[in-house]
Design a protein around this nucleic acid. Structure first.
Lengths: 231, 231
DNA sequence: GTCTATAACGAGATAGAC
DNA sequence: GTCTATCTCGTTATAGAC
């Protein structure tokens, strides 16, 4: 507390070590998977002793949570950047720009993708602090559809079956009160379906089924956009 | 070879022990995840010694492969049974029957679902022997669309973009030469998208987003069916 | 031939004493 | 923070029971 420089240096050192821990943890994620992520191994690789890590992350689960939030944020940032570049284009172009950014990010960060959209890690449940980062891609899609709606560029969807009406209205009230419930329901479905396409490619289900995946993906997400009433 | 009974008894014992090993392995799968599946722990739980397991599975990976094939077959059987019950119905009804069977099976077997459709197990790559079992659900969908096509009950889809034409023709030649390439491409996409819906529900992405999931899913898969030209 | 048990390897994780 | 003793793991070689 005597001068500001040591404090700043201290804070910077803390951030640097925190970053080094997460980098090493991501390396282990790629090599062994999230289930085997071990604070001890991270510490060993960094030349630290395991107990020292607890000053940065109070538990293995907290480290996992930080990695998950980082992954969602990295994906969200990529998607937002791609969306920004297409901001002046039509809604379908904006939609596919975000979708392709998601796919590109997933192909470049397969292990982090597996961490956030793959099988849950046994014994770990994500806290609510992951929600804002996890929502970023979805919010982009909502924004695109909302803009189209306010520009009267949205195709009206078929009326909802009675059994879904209440739930669709609840979802709309929660996510986008200015959009028709049928549109919101279709949007949430398209959101999940997009990650089905990405996951199948990444996790090997398209092996020997889809070879030329980029045009296949582009066409599929274009049709997803049409399914929610765009274009 | 002296009499048939001892041979039958031996074979039966072998099958029973094989089944017991897989059952115990599935229990571990649920508790610890596929990455931590351990031959020794399985043997211990069964009161055997670890080396004895090698009479039944030549390696840990072979045990994993057996579990994967079993899971695909269990899912495929459920889907085929549901499809059989809807055999007389229209194509959309048959489609949703299969899709709902997939979802039901996934909800009842979450860990086996994670094994086959979740993140890949680090250090393991599935051999080609898993392909037939893995194809069963897809083949059902192809059959449904093919029947609709031959009954002239298929809506024609929009023409394919030029960049996708060659790949769609290749996929069609591989999977269903009697179907239009655009339909095959849409079918493969819908197949992946279906598992996106199921995976999002199972892996927690719908947490606080979709609450009443059954009607939501039904509506979504109905729209997937329409997307490939059914109904 | 078919199976199980013992023992061991090399590697890695872990708990506790210091 | 370090060291050590003791665990785990997959896998193999070998010996013997049925």
């Amino acid at each position: 507390m005597s001068s500001s420089t040591p404090q700043g240096a201290r804070a910077r050192a803390r951030m640097e070590i925190t970053a080094a821990i997460k980098d090493e943890a991501r390396r282990q994620l790629a090599a062994e998977g999230a289930a085997k992520l071990s604070l001890r191994a991270v510490a060993r690789q960094l030349g630290m002793v395991s107990s020292a890590l607890y000053r940065y992350f109070p538990s293995r689960d907290d480290l996992l949570t930080a990695l998950i939030i980082d992954a969602y944020d990295s994906l969200g940032e990529s998607a937002e950047a791609a969306h920004g570049k297409a901001a002046d284009a039509g809604p379908v172009r904006r939609w596919t720009a975000v979708a392709e950014a998601v796919r590109d990010w997933a192909l470049q960060h397969p292990h982090e993708y597996a961490l956030i959209y793959g099988s849950p890690v046994p014994g770990y449940t994500a806290p609510d602090t992951t929600v804002p980062a996890a929502s970023r891609v979805g919010l982009l899609f909502i924004g695109i559809v909302r803009d189209a709606h306010h520009a009267s560029a949205l195709t009206e969807l078929a009326p909802l079956p009675a059994e879904l009406r209440a739930e669709a209205e609840r979802m709309a009230a929660d996510l986008a009160p200015d959009l028709p419930p049928a549109t919101v329901a279709a949007l949430v479905a398209a959101w999940a379906e997009l990650f089905g396409l990405v996951g199948f490619e990444l996790f090997g289900q398209f092996h020997r089924v889809v070879e030329d995946r980029e045009p296949f993906f582009r066409q599929a997400v274009t049709r997803l956009a049409q399914g929610v009433g765009l274009g």
